[in-house]
Nucleic acid binder design. Structure first.
Length: 311
DNA sequence: CGGCATACCTGCAAGC
DNA sequence: TGCTTGCAGGTATGCC
């Protein structure tokens, strides 16, 4: 599930259970996810208090306060394609959970692909589940976690003040790569994935296969399209976060609730359905090996896509 | 460096 | 029904 809105939804779901609380112990049930777990991972986290749970792009950043004789640490987490967290009340919290309105997750049994379990102070269990194991957890320098190689090269944070037409023009000026591929490149703008790139380009009325250079004029100033795109990215992400993200393929949020932004998709996974703006059928094409959904009527300029033209 | 394909891994739906 | 195929929200890597 995880593009920026889904990761932010996860962060908000986990924060009340994890921030300010101590990790009593950590169960790590396999040696690796996408990458091997760091040396002594479980032992290094056990006993630490989680000072903060932050997000950068699609990454979660867990800041830990050290135990006696051990300095502060930070953990970088990524959900990959299929990672999710689930919060459960442990035995110690069962009693409290019976009170009306108390937090309680409907699922309580261990499931397949539960790879990591955080046993939290207060009795909550936070379980990381990831069937495809494209996610990962690595440790970073607590003093400067953003200098970690995974985070150092990330581009514009789209929910921050940085997202402006001028910055888009600056980052994409002169690029021949398609808008679709450019927006998926986390080194330029970070946090968008296949869904929200498709949706943002539709909102902005920009063709996915137009070169990224259309966002800047010859002098490097932002075009009207850049202005529309900046607003489109901001609006689609903000609305998606407010909706609790998008829930696809049975993924659920950490608190057991479902995101509902998927009901708002204009084009993503809607091939053949009418474009909400003009009614033309939504089309699908493959770019860089991934599906792009778009409205050929609304999204211009659209260079020829290799279709044969009659003379 | 830019641009593209491939690899990683499992589950699911569609097609035969 | 059962098998095969293709596709899925991600990033890293290696090749031209």
């Amino acid at each position: 599930m995880p593009e920026l809105p889904e990761v932010e939804t996860v962060r908000r779901g986990l924060a009340p259970v994890m921030e300010g609380r101590r990790i009593l112990s950590l169960e790590v049930r396999r040696p690796d996810l996408r990458f091997p777990f760091p040396e002594g991972f479980a032992a290094r986290l056990a006993g630490c208090r989680i000072a903060a749970l932050d997000r950068r792009a699609k990454y979660l950043l867990m800041r830990l306060e050290g135990r006696e004789g051990q300095g502060p640490q930070a953990v970088i987490l990524h959900l990959g394609m299929s990672g999710s967290f689930r919060i459960e009340t442990g035995a110690a919290a069962q009693e409290a959970a019976r009170s009306p309105g108390a937090f309680h997750h409907p699922r309580a049994k261990a499931a397949a692909h539960d790879h990591v379990v955080f046993h939290m102070e207060g009795g909550m269990r936070v379980t990381y589940n990831d069937p495809r194991r494209f996610g990962f957890m690595v440790m970073a320098d607590a003093a400067d976690p953003f200098s970690h190689p995974l985070l150092a090269g990330l581009g514009i944070e789209p929910l921050g003040n940085e997202l402006a037409p001028e910055r888009l023009a600056q980052v994409f000026a002169g690029r021949s790569v398609s808008l679709k591929a450019a927006l998926l490149d986390q080194k330029r703008i970070a946090g968008l994935g296949n869904i929200y790139v498709c949706e943002a380009l539709w909102r902005a009325g920009l063709a996915p296969d137009a070169p990224a250079s259309v966002l800047a004029d010859a002098a490097g100033r932002p075009t009207a399209g850049a202005a529309r795109l900046a607003e489109a990215i901001r609006s689609v992400l903000t609305e998606a976060v407010a909706a609790g993200g998008s829930t696809l393929r049975d993924h659920i949020q950490a608190d057991g609730s479902l995101g509902y932004f998927q009901h708002t998709f204009a084009v993503y996974d809607r091939e053949g359905a009418p474009c909400p703006r003009c009614g033309a059928p939504v089309e699908r094409m493959v770019q860089n090996g991934r599906s792009t959904f778009f409205c050929a009527a609304c999204q211009r300029p659209a260079p020829a896509r290799g279709k044969k033209r009659r003379p």
